[in-house]
């Protein structure tokens, strides 16, 4: 009947192979290519433009990475390289700052929503609420960005509203504060991503634990702090990662909201890859940014490991 371990293993492999092959082709292979290209160089330090010309031979080099550390001009660092390294560092820093702010805003706003739906919405209405929360996803992100331009821009909805109630007499034009506008737009876009994992973790909290907390002398608020919050931290951590990781690499928002004046790291990668046709340098930036995100995410998970799986 095919119940022997080897037959089961075979069946298992058969079942996982289509997605596994897909992942290998679509994710692992391009990643490896980018990783390889980031160490690629040409004779005489010429930029690596694909496809290669006749007679060009790629060789292994660390010079792409070295260029990221050109803090001052030297034999190996031209003044262009120095400007480039500084601008890259700024963009990377901005990416991390924007991602951190977006994550903070999103999670702080999403938690009460998730809490309300989990604890105060009648079970039969919970699906409806979750469905409604996903409404922002129904329109294309580009359209939502365009709408945010209208809302935040000169004499836009925000200016009109604040002007009408007399808080401001000059238009604020929030759009001119590129980073702020990017944070507002991205926070809105990622809110549902943060609500869902937090909601799921709150749903798993045994309600009798909350009664136990109160029975043992804690108020509703202190019970929340000592019981509900720690038990839902797995969802919060998931939400943080889900929001943080893609926002670091966001490319559309700075382009459309910030009009390219406040580029993030993804815009730099795009410039290297397509405008400058320096695929090796583009790959180097991509790998570096991936590495930084990986380190930040790992540190965050480690800092919260007592809430995850390994319960005391």
């Amino acid at each position: 009947m095919g119940n022997t371990p080897s037959a089961e293993a075979k069946a298992g492999w058969t079942l996982v192979s289509p997605p596994a092959i897909y992942v290998l082709l679509m994710l692992a292979a391009p990643l490896l290519l980018v990783f390889g290209l980031s160490f690629a160089g040409l004779e005489g330090g010429a930029k690596v433009s694909l496809p290669l010309q006749e007679g060009q031979d790629l060789h292994f080099t660390l010079s792409n990475y070295a260029k990221l550390f050109c803090w001052s001009a030297s034999d190996t660092c031209s003044s262009t390289d120095v400007r480039m390294a500084q601008a890259t560092a700024t963009a990377m820093g901005r990416s991390l700052l924007v991602a951190a702010l977006v994550t903070l805003t999103t999670v702080l706003l999403a938690y009460p929503v998730a809490y309300y739906v989990s604890f105060h919405v009648h079970p039969s209405k919970k699906s409806l609420w979750l469905f409604l929360i996903t409404i922002p996803f129904w329109t294309s992100y580009v359209i939502r960005v365009a709408l945010w331009r209208t809302i935040l821009g000169y004499d836009g909805a925000v200016d009109a509203a604040l002007g009408a109630v007399g808080i401001i007499d000059q238009p604020l034009n929030l759009l001119q504060y590129g980073t702020l506008a990017i944070v507002i737009t991205l926070s809105h876009a990622y809110a549902p991503f943060a609500v869902l994992p937090i909601f799921v973790s709150l749903e798993k909290v045994d309600r009798s634990l909350l009664e136990a907390g109160q029975d043992l002398g804690e108020s509703r608020w202190t019970t929340f702090l000592r019981v509900t919050l720690p038990l839902s931290m797995a969802g919060v951590v998931a939400a943080v990662l889900i929001v943080f990781i893609p926002t670091v690499g966001d490319y559309v928002t700075p382009e459309l909201i910030g009009s390219g004046k406040v580029p993030m790291i993804a815009n730099f990668i795009e410039t290297q890859m397509w405008k400058l046709r320096n695929q090796a340098m583009g790959s180097t930036l991509a790998v570096s940014s991936m590495l930084i995100v990986a380190v930040v995410a790992t540190l965050f998970v480690l800092a919260n490991r007592r809430f995850l799986g390994g319960r005391k």
Partner: peptide, 19 residues
Amino acid sequence: PANVRPTNMVFQSYAIFPH
């Protein structure tokens, strides 16, 4: 409220804090 009553409860599910 429950948290100031001079009673304590052993819940049917025991309600042991898993964390």
